[in-house]
């Protein structure tokens, strides 16, 4: 395994060839904001929150999709990057109906945490207030489209880890919608194994366990790593 040495936010760090900027930064205590990345499944580079500056490159790069190279000088926290991140999170809040006060994951939501850490106290954009449905047809779980940020974590974990590929998107652009199977109600899905992995990786309250009240739902953030470590290293460690 060949080693790559580079600099992130002024700190000299090392990674191995093929490792992403995001992962090397994380290993060194530099936590770049992200919403679509989740350890254990493939990356898609969709949320654009982890965009960073690489010296000598004209364009910003997505840290989760860019492998480290020898001698890279990376900045993850410039004013411009923070401004972009703030606007991206504001875009999400304006896109659907994220009403924290009545959300099951209030207090433990990745979108909420992002907003807090970026210092977002108001949204400059006009809220769209779309009319979206809630699918509670599954006996144990529910899907609230109002909270969905279309990060596709559930799609990837269901496809790559569970192997069911129950989830996918229908429609395009702002009309994209998470669907189970070919648009059937989740409870009627023939491919769903009711494993609940999608619920745990969902960064918001879009996928939730039934029976939870406001602020009661807590997601197991480490379960995926547990499964993936077991699969890859045959070690059952939490």
């Amino acid at each position: 395994m060949s080693v790559r040495t580079l600099e992130i936010d002024g700190k000299a760090v090392t990674g191995v060839a093929g490792q992403s900027i995001f992962s090397v930064a994380w290993d060194n205590g530099i936590h770049i904001p992200r919403l679509c990345h989740v350890g254990g499944v493939s990356d898609v580079g969709a949320c654009r929150l982890c965009m960073v500056e690489v010296e000598g490159q004209r364009k910003l790069v997505a840290a989760c999709m860019t492998p480290v190279e020898e001698g890279m000088v990376i900045r993850t926290n410039t004013e411009q990057l923070l401004a972009h991140r703030r606007l991206i999170v504001e875009l999400l809040f304006a896109e659907r109906n994220h009403i924290c006060a009545v959300c099951v994951v209030n207090g433990a939501c990745e979108l909420q945490d992002l907003a807090a850490s970026l210092g977002i106290d108001h949204v400059r954009l006009r809220y769209r207030f779309p009319t979206l449905s809630v699918d509670t047809s599954h006996e144990r779980f529910g899907l609230d489209h109002n909270r969905c940020v279309l990060c596709s974590r559930c799609i990837r974990v269901c496809d790559e880890v569970e192997g069911a590929h129950t989830w996918d998107f229908s429609g395009r652009g702002v009309n994209s919608l998470l669907i189970s199977d070919l648009g059937e109600a989740w409870g009627e899905s023939e491919s769903c194994t009711s494993c609940g992995k999608c619920v745990q990786v969902c960064p918001t309250g879009a996928l939730f366990a039934k029976g939870k009240m406001v602020s009661e739902m807590r997601k197991d953030r480490r379960f995926l790593k547990y499964i993936v470590t077991a699969r890859e290293k045959h070690e059952w460690v939490r």
Binding site: R126, G173, V174
Partner: peptide, 21 residues
């Protein structure tokens, strides 16, 4: 562009909508 955005990345999906608005 708003109509033709695929919806994968947030800036294009939600940004074109806001710019259009």
């Amino acid at each position: 562009c708003m109509d033709e955005s695929c919806g994968k990345c947030i800036p294009c999906r939600a940004g074109t909508v806001q710019m259009h608005d």
